[in-house]
Write a protein that binds this DNA or RNA. Structure first.
Length: 769
DNA sequence: GTAAGAAAAATTTTT
DNA sequence: TTTTTCTTAC
C-alpha cells in the first residue's frame, strides 16, 4: 500500500513505522523524530484499517498526549482521532478504574489524593503512632511507600518481605511497615487513591479479574508507549499484560534521557526490552534533526561519561553552529542580569523571538532571581512549574469542598475544610473525631452522621457545630445529580462562606485570591460547556473532579502563543525544544543536586539530566555558573559543576577567569556584597561585555589541548609541578603552563576548589618553595 | 478555641 | 527566604 506521508520519513523512521507484525522497540536519540515516528505510526495503523478505539497510546504528560492527538487529527481527521485511547498512564487507567471500581472495593466516584494529601495523611499517621517525625520524615516515608507501590508491593507483601523489613530495621525505621499498612487502609476508607494507586490498583484489577483483563486485551489491538525509559515496574506490567496475547506493541524511548528514577522509573525496562518480548524488533533513530553539530557533539561527549547506556551514535547534518558559551559570574543576581542582557541582545540584534528562548534550571527556587532580572529589563516571560494553579490555597479549599460533597469519606478534604472558614471546630475536636473513627473502623464522616452512636466525646456546643457542618455538606450532596457542576460549585462557594472569607479586604493578595476563585469557576463553566457538546445533558461535579485531579499547570496554560521567554526546570523541559537555551546554576551542590551524589547510579541520572538540558537547544546554548548564590537565607560559595568538565572543551567557549585585584581573603565577602548590591539595586548597562554573545573565539582561554594558539613553555616563572598560593583559591599545584594568544597561562589544581585556568597577568600568584 | 507573633526548620526533580 | 510549628494572650 502506498501511503504518501511515509515519504516524509527517513529510512529508519519509516521502517519503525511500517513494522506492525509484533513487538518493537524504537531507540530514539534526542531530536531524532521520536514523536514523529509515534504519530506517523498511529496514522499508519489507522490508514491500514485499524479502528481508532482499539489503539492505546500512553504518554508521560497530558500535554504530549494532546499534541500528538492534534497532529494525528490533522493527518487522519478529527472524527477518527477523537476515538483513540491516548493519554497518560494515570489518566487512562483512572478512567478504566472508575468504570470497574466496584470490583476492587472502591466507588465510581473515588477521590484521587494528590501528593499534598498523601503528605498530610502520612504526617497524621506518624503523629497518631506517636513516632518521632524527625526520624519518620514525611518526605522519606512518602517515597518509601511510593517505592513499594511502584514495585507492586502491597502492605501485606511488605510485611511478608523479610528483606525489606530487615533493611528498615537497619535504617532505624522498623515501623514503616505499620505506617504503610495504616496509610493504605486510610486511603481505602476514604475511598481515595493516590497517584501510585492508579497504577497499583490497575494491576490488582487485572490480577484478580482475568475477565476484565481479557476485555481490555481484546479492546486494545495495538499498544504504544512513549518515553518508555521512564516507566516503572507497575507501568511495565500493565503494558506487558495488555499486550500479552498479540504482542502488538511499540515502545519508544531514549535511555540517555531517563530522568525519573526518583519516581520509580526503571531504566532496565528499556535496557532489557528484548527479554520481555522475545521476538522484538529494534530500531535505532540516530540522526538528530534538532540541533547544530556542535550541540549534538557536545552532548555526546558528555553522555559518553556514563557507563550505563545503549551505545548509539547520534549525529547531526545541520550546520556546525556556534560553541556552547560558558558564562561565569560572581553572584546569582549577576547571573540573572547577564542572562537577561543576552536575551535582550538576542532579541534586538539577532532577531530571535522571545518564544525561541528558554532558561532551564535544576530547581524551581532558581526561577525567582531570573524572574526579577527579566522583569527589570522588561522581557516578557512565562514560568512553568512551581506553585500551579490547582495547588493554591484558595483553589484547594474550594476543590476540597467539592471533593467532600462528592465523596464524604474523603478524610483529607474533610480535615481541610471542616474549620474553614472558621466555625469553632478546632484541632482537639478534629483529633477526637479521627481517633473515634479509627476506633470504630469507619470514616470520619460516618462518625459525623451519628455522633451519639459513636460516642464522640464532645460538648453540646461542639456537637451542634459539627451537625451544622454535616447538614451543609448533605444539602450540597443532594444536588450532585441535579445541578450542573458549575451551578453546584457556585452555590458551594457562596453558601460555605468561602467567598465572604476571600472577599474581606482589598489587599493585592486578597484580590488575587478572588481572581483565582473566579478563574476556577470559569474553568468549571467551560468544562460544562464542552461536555455539553459531547451529547451529555449536563456535566456533573464528580465529572469535573475526575478531570481536574490529574491536571498540572502546563495543561491549564492558555497563552501558549504569546511571545515570551520560557522558564522551567530541566525535568519539565523534556520533550521540548528551543532555538536558544540558557542552562543556569551549573554549580556543584546544585547541579548535580547534593541529594544525588551518593551513588554512581544517581550521578549518572544527573548527567543524563544535563544531557537533556543541552539537547533542548537548536542553535545556541549557554551555560552559566555563579561563584556565590543566595540559598535558604544565606549566601553560599560554589564551584562550577563537575559536568562542565565532562563536555569536550572543543565545543565550548570558555570565559576568562575574572579574578578581583589582589586582596586578602577577608575582602572577598565585601566584594561579593558589592557585586550583589550593584546588581540588585540598579541595573546599569552591561559591564562584562564579553558575556554577550558567542563570537568567534578571540580572547578566550581554552582548556583543550587541541588549541593551536597554545604554546607550551619551558621556563615559566611558575614551572609545572610547583606549588603556588592564590588570594582566593588558596594553595594549588601547577599542572601545566602555556602561552595563549600571547598571554602566559597556568592550569592549577586547587584541590577542593577545582582546577582553574589562570592568566598570570591577572592572577597574582605567590610561588611557594 | 482563636489569632497573632516568635521560634525553628527546611529546603529536588512530578504524574 | 519561606514555611511550619510552638507559644502566648485573649
Amino acid at each position: 500500500m502506498e501511503i504518501s506521508f511515509l515519504n516524509e520519513l527517513n529510512n529508519n523512521q519509516r521502517q519503525a513505522v511500517e513494522y506492525t507484525d509484533g513487538a518493537s522497540l524504537v531507540i530514539a536519540g534526542a531530536g531524532s523524530g521520536k514523536t514523529r515516528v509515534l504519530t506517523y505510526k498511529i496514522a499508519y495503523l489507522l490508514k491500514t484499517g485499524m479502528q481508532p478505539s482499539s489503539i492505546l497510546a500512553l504518554t508521560f504528560t497530558n500535554k504530549a498526549a494532546r499534541e500528538m492527538k492534534e497532529r494525528i487529527a490533522s493527518m487522519v481527521g478529527e472524527k477518527t482521532a477523537r476515538y483513540l485511547w491516548m493519554g497518560t498512564f494515570h489518566s487512562i487507567f483512572s478512567r478504566i478504574l472508575r468504570s470497574e471500581a466496584e470490583l476492587i472495593g472502591y466507588s465510581k466516584n473515588f477521590t484521587i489524593y494528590d501528593s499534598a494529601d498523601s503528605k498530610s495523611l502520612v504526617k497524621s499517621i506518624v503523629k497518631e503512632l506517636k513516632l518521632d517525625d524527625k526520624v519518620y520524615k514525611h518526605g522519606f516515608v512518602q517515597s518509601r511507600i511510593s517505592y513499594a507501590k511502584n514495585n507492586l508491593i502491597t502492605p501485606d507483601a511488605y510485611l511478608a518481605n523479610t528483606e525489606i523489613l530487615k533493611a528498615d530495621v537497619s535504617s532505624r525505621i522498623p515501623l514503616l511497615k505499620d505506617i504503610y499498612k495504616i496509610y493504605a487502609h486510610r486511603c481505602k476508607q476514604a475511598d481515595a487513591m493516590d497517584f501510585d494507586d492508579l497504577l497499583l490498583q490497575t494491576n490488582v484489577l487485572f490480577r484478580n479479574h482475568p475477565e476484565i483483563l481479557q476485555k481490555y486485551q481484546h479492546r486494545f489491538g495495538f499498544v504504544l508507549v512513549d518515553e518508555y525509559q521512564d516507566t516503572n515496574f507497575a507501568q511495565y506490567l500493565i503494558v506487558k499484560k495488555l499486550a500479552e496475547q498479540h504482542e502488538k506493541i511499540c515502545v519508544v524511548g531514549d535511555d540517555a534521557q531517563s530522568i525519573y528514577s526518583f519516581r520509580g522509573a526503571n531504566i532496565d525496562n528499556i535496557l532489557t526490552f528484548k527479554n520481555a518480548y522475545k521476538n522484538a524488533q529494534i530500531f535505532k533513530l540516530e540522526q538528530n534533526y534538532r540541533s547544530t553539530q556542535t550541540i549534538v557533539n557536545a552532548a555526546n561527549s558528555l553522555i559518553d561519561k556514563n557507563s550505563q547506556q545503549i551505545r548509539k551514535t547520534v549525529f547531526s547534518e545541520k550546520e556546525t553552529g556556534k560553541p556552547i558559551k560558558i558564562l561565569n559570574v560572581f553572584t546569582d543576581y549577576e547571573e540573572g542580569f547577564i542572562v537577561a542582557n543576552n536575551i535582550s541582545d538576542l532579541h534586538s540584534v539577532n532577531d530571535y523571538q522571545y518564544q525561541d528562548i528558554a532558561i532551564l534550571y535544576r530547581t524551581n527556587s532558581q526561577s525567582r532571581v531570573m524572574e526579577e532580572a527579566l522583569r527589570k529589563q522588561s522581557i516578557p516571560y512565562r514560568i512553568y512549574g512551581g506553585l500551579s494553579f490547582y495547588q493554591r490555597k484558595e483553589i484547594k479549599d474550594v476543590i476540597a469542598y467539592c471533593r467532600l460533597v462528592c465523596n464524604p469519606n474523603d478524610e483529607e478534604a474533610l480535615k481541610r475544610i471542616i474549620n474553614y472558614p472558621t466555625r469553632g471546630i478546632g484541632e482537639t475536636t478534629i483529633n477526637k473525631l479521627i481517633e473515634c473513627a479509627q476506633l470504630h473502623a469507619v470514616s470520619a464522616w460516618e462518625v459525623l452522621t451519628d455522633i451519639l452512636k459513636y460516642n464522640l466525646a464532645v460538648n453540646a456546643g461542639t456537637a451542634n457545630k459539627l451537625a451544622q457542618f454535616r447538614s451543609m455538606i448533605d444539602v450540597f450532596a443532594e444536588q450532585i445529580n441535579i445541578q450542573s457542576a458549575y451551578d453546584l460549585a457556585k452555590s458551594i462557594i457562596k453558601t460555605s462562606g468561602v467567598i465572604s472569607d476571600t472577599y474581606t479586604d482589598r489587599s493585592p493578595e486578597s484580590m488575587s485570591r478572588q481572581e483565582n476563585v473566579e478563574e476556577l469557576l470559569k474553568a468549571i463553566h467551560e468544562f460544562c460547556e464542552t461536555e455539553k457538546t459531547d451529547g451529555e445533558p449536563t456535566a456533573l461535579l464528580p465529572d469535573f473532579l475526575s478531570e481536574v485531579s490529574l491536571l498540572t499547570d502546563q495543561d491549564t496554560d492558555k497563552e501558549t502563543n504569546k511571545d515570551k521567554v520560557t522558564l522551567m526546570t530541566v525535568h519539565a523541559a523534556k520533550g521540548l525544544e528551543f532555538k536558544v537555551v540558557f542552562i543556569v546554576g551549573m554549580e556543584e551542590e546544585l547541579f548535580p543536586s547534593p541529594f544525588c551524589t551518593q551513588s554512581e547510579r544517581e550521578l549518572e541520572e544527573e548527567r543524563r539530566l544535563f544531557y537533556v538540558a543541552i539537547t533542548r537547544a537548536e542553535e545556541l546554548c549557554f551555560i552559566s555558573y555563579a561563584k556565590s548564590r543566595f540559598k535558604n537565607g544565606k549566601t553560599n560559595f560554589s564551584n562550577p559543576s563537575r559536568f562542565i568538565k565532562d563536555i569536550d572543551p572543543q565545543y565550548l567557549e570558555l570565559p576568562v577567569e575574572i579574578i578581583p585585584k589582589q586582596k586578602n581573603i577577608g575582602d572577598w565577602d565585601e566584594d561579593m556584597e558589592f557585586e550583589r548590591n550593584r546588581f540588585k539595586s540598579s541595573f546599569s548597562k552591561p559591564i562584562l561585555k564579553e558575556n554577550i554573545l558567542p563570537q568567534t573565539p578571540k580572547r578566550l582561554v581554552k582548556l583543550s589541548n587541541s588549541d593551536n594558539n597554545k604554546v607550551p613553555i619551558e621556563n615559566s616563572s611558575v614551572p609545572s609541578g610547583s606549588f603556588v598560593k592564590h588570594a582566593v583559591f588558596g594553595i594549588g599545584k601547577v599542572l601545566e603552563t602555556s602561552i595563549v594568544n600571547g598571554n602566559e597561562k597556568a592550569d592549577i589544581d586547587f584541590g577542593e576548589k577545582g582546577v582553574k585556568s589562570l592568566l598570570l597577568k591577572f592572577a597574582k600568584l605567590e610561588i611557594l618553595k
